[in-house]
Design a protein around this nucleic acid. Structure first.
Lengths: 185, 185
DNA sequence: TCCATGATTGACTAATCACTCCACAAATGT
DNA sequence: ACATTTGTGGAGTGATTAGTCAATCATGGA
């Protein structure tokens, strides 16, 4: 019923499969089951749609990753929860992940609205708090963050390309957190 | 003098700046200082050009990374050399790295010629040899490989975004290898 | 000198695509 | 009941672009 959502979903699907250039707006409208003009009623330009999808995904990820965090969790507990949640999100939302990758390594990155940039501030702050509490190694928080994200990315990619039982996956995920934790402490 | 190289360089530059979609072949020809038709004399299609650039970069990286390797180096020495060379390549060839990222997260990946896929086999074999010699942890070699590459990527990104003295860079690079080595052994 | 081969040119084209426009429908307010 | 806003449709348009082609130019061998 919600045509805007239909358009977003159709566009997400087609963009991940055929790329931004490879999918005309007409195909998006067709896939979403709306008319060509309707698409431009909701999104003034194709670029705006491309950015909107990214913003939507980021919002979902942000919610998903932080929903289990308790204020009185220890640093390690918090980090563990963030890590696990992010990894699971990546596994469950392969298409969205691929979209984000494509988006971030395209010239559209420069169109990200400012208010979204601060999203990952919570994690940076957690790292800084961890350093203050002397549980995390004294290095620039951005460096630690960079290491963690890329590790996350690597594990995700491995899990997504190899196929394995859910049990093996769980084991791998937990082990990989311990690996990262050992590295940053 | 070599117009084919001129075209490749011009295309690399424009594609990294404006994306595949955002740069028309006419602009590439212009930047390369050749006529429109000349471009299509060397590359049958725009897609072929896009893939050719990737292949060229991969060739350079492959050469750069393996040129210092000696057959009688220890596993750790070999790994260290690979790691350092790859990191330096990424620092010295920011544009090429960005191109590779953009390419790999685009639908053009599926056009990579088969003979190129085996490129990273040498590193996988090194890891397997390391496992046999009991210096590297017993995990699937592809997993270890995935962890190393993504770590490399993360460090690279950090170095490229922050600016720091060359001395600090060197220190960071060496420390980061020890971090990875600790992780995989 | 003459020919052959391949490089080089740039005007041209057929197709595509982002976006507009306007008519109409549905919802919402008064 | 009427007016106003909001949503929806889809044909149409102007600009852009990948790729073509026929003509020229450069090189070198016979």
């Amino acid at each position: 019923m919600d045509k805007q959502k239909d358009i977003l979903n159709a566009a997400l699907k087609l963009f991940t499969e055929f790329g931004f250039h490879g999918t005309p707006t007409s195909k998006i409208a067709q896939e979403a089951g709306v008319a060509n003009g309707t698409l431009f009623h909701y999104f003034k330009t194709k670029d705006e749609l491309i950015v909107a999808i990214y913003v939507e995904i980021k919002k979902q990820l942000g919610f998903c990753v932080s929903k289990d965090i308790q204020p009185d969790d220890s640093i390690k507990e918090t980090a563990h929860k963030y890590y696990i949640a992010a990894l699971h999100w990546g596994i469950d939302n392969e298409m969205e992940l691929r979209y984000v990758q494509q988006f971030l390594s395209s010239p559209y990155v420069s169109m990200i609205p400012k208010e979204l940039v601060e999203q990952s501030l919570a994690i940076i702050n957690m790292i800084k708090e961890g350093i203050k509490q002397k549980v995390i190694k004294v290095t620039p928080a951005e460096y630690t963050m960079s290491i963690i994200s890329s590790h996350l990315y690597g594990v995700n990619q491995y899990i997504n390309t190899q196929q394995m039982s859910t049990a093996k996956q769980k084991q791998l995920i937990n082990e990989s957190f311990e690996l990262v934790w050992k590295m940053i402490t």
